[in-house]
Design a protein around this nucleic acid. Structure first.
Lengths: 265, 265
DNA sequence: CGCGATTTGTGCACCTGTTCACAAGCGCTT
DNA sequence: AAGCGCTTGTGAACAGGTGCACAAATCGCG
């Protein structure tokens, strides 16, 4: 159970990137077709690899990397096999070129400029989050609708009014935006962002955005995550109660106290 | 493409809750076996239903609710059918009892106490996040390892030292914790939480936690989300470039400018 | 009271993704 | 130079989830 479930729902099917058969242009396998599920795991592999590199490793086996990334080794090998062959049988994977390949695939060789809209409670924290900077992104602009917030400096960047979105998105060549506005404003702001040229949005507002097909949207809803955990809590206690009842009636083997953990294990 | 992908990876398979065959105890269908994918969508349905209720609706069709929740109607009907029958053919679903049923399943009838560990940049924002309170949770305790932070009041709650975790988790009957510590501290803190009795953890630290089977862990990594979007950006531009090249060579139909959007649509 | 319009609930086929298990390949040792 | 142990890469079976398409059920209206 404590297998780690990480962001990103499958839900949408199909390979990603399969648009032009390479036969048409005879291109080298520069951009392989990756299953969506694999794409979602690559960042986790990348993080684990960086950690291994920092702790002095040059190579790592699929078993070792799988452990560090919280997946099983077969899955890991299949995922990496999609990127081409970066392993040596009998030895393992060379960390350095593998890191390079994954970063290339993820488009992280160049640092990407990101806009953040909504400098409220959450947005403020995101603006200061060091993890963005250290993992390939640069917060290039902050926006808010509230005029009293405009001008405020956060981490050295001034908050601008959302009216400036078109101008700034163009001048900074921003294609990714983080949306941390209140729910009510999210759709309108998203429309403005898309109109300005943004093609990927990370949405923290608890609303379903309605946007053109070609725009990628990922949603993170903190309350939803807790509610899913709540379900599992409810389930555990319900099952525990039922089992206890069953025990009390049938009363065969094992101590009622241990049942919950035992069953799950 | 702009279909909304929401947290929560499948990855782990199997029904949830299938532990005791109800034959053993002849229990009413109080706690149905739900596919994990369905569980992950229920919170979204719940949010949409609340919104509909607030805007004066009594009933809603599967089509309408599916639209509001960002899924297709067949999937929605199948999901709801797992909860038992709350719809009327020819009419739709009665919102009120449906809300009640989903809240019951998710264990949201009673407000759940949550502990938050790590009152740094992100933790501070989470502590003040209104969405938790409004959607079934109560932040019952704040913890930090930094003694200079201990005692600070956030939203009316005092930050306590992590050494107090065992005591407070027991006295407040906390089973869910939010982990917003630096990566280096996360595993140790998680161990302490579990030892104190916590059985579900929402982990914001970019590390894979190693915990007993019976503990549920969900992971949210903001940088990972951006990296996935980055992949799609990279893919879009790579495909765009290839298409442009192909166009320039073969030069058959359509304007090169429109291709990207056209293909995706 | 019966008929038609509407919408749910679901059997079924399809498809993505996971896992097992093993052959192929590599390096080290003798 | 040959053999041995180790690890990758992958074919094949399996599991879970999705979406179509339709039968069953309900309501409203004539």
């Amino acid at each position: 159970m404590s297998q780690q479930r990480t962001g990103h729902e499958a839900g949408i099917t199909g390979r990603v990137g399969a648009v032009t058969p390479s036969a048409v242009l005879g291109s080298q396998p520069d951009f392989p077709d990756l299953p969506e599920a694999t794409v979602a795991r690559l960042p986790e592999y990348l993080r684990a690899l960086h950690h291994l590199a920092e702790t002095g490793h040059d190579t790592v086996s699929s078993e070792g990397l799988a452990l560090a990334a919280g997946v099983n080794s077969a899955k890991l090998r299949k995922d990496l096999s999609h990127l081409g062959s970066y392993g040596t049988r009998g030895v393992g994977y060379d960390i350095e070129p593998l890191v390079g390949q994954i970063e290339y695939i993820l488009g992280l060789n160049k640092r990407r400029a990101v806009a953040l809209v909504g400098v409220g409670n959450l947005g403020h924290a995101l603006a200061g989050y060091a993890g963005f900077a250290s993992r390939g992104f640069r917060i290039a602009a902050l926006f808010d609708a509230d005029l009293t917030r405009v001008g405020e400096l956060i981490n050295g960047i001034a908050v601008r009014h959302i009216g400036d979105i078109p101008e700034v998105v163009k001048s900074e060549a921003i294609s990714i935006a983080v949306l941390a506005t209140p729910a009510g404003a999210a759709q309108a702001v998203a429309d403005q962002l898309v109109a300005a040229g943004v093609t990927s949005i990370l949405n923290f507002a608890p609303v379903v955005l309605n946007l053109p097909e070609q725009v990628d949207v990922r949603k993170v809803d903190l309350a939803v995550e807790l509610q899913i955990l709540s379900f599992h809590e409810h389930r555990k206690s319900a099952r525990g109660a039922e089992l206890a009842k069953a025990m009390a009636r049938g009363a065969v083997n094992g101590s009622p106290v241990a049942t919950l953990g035992e069953v799950a294990a």
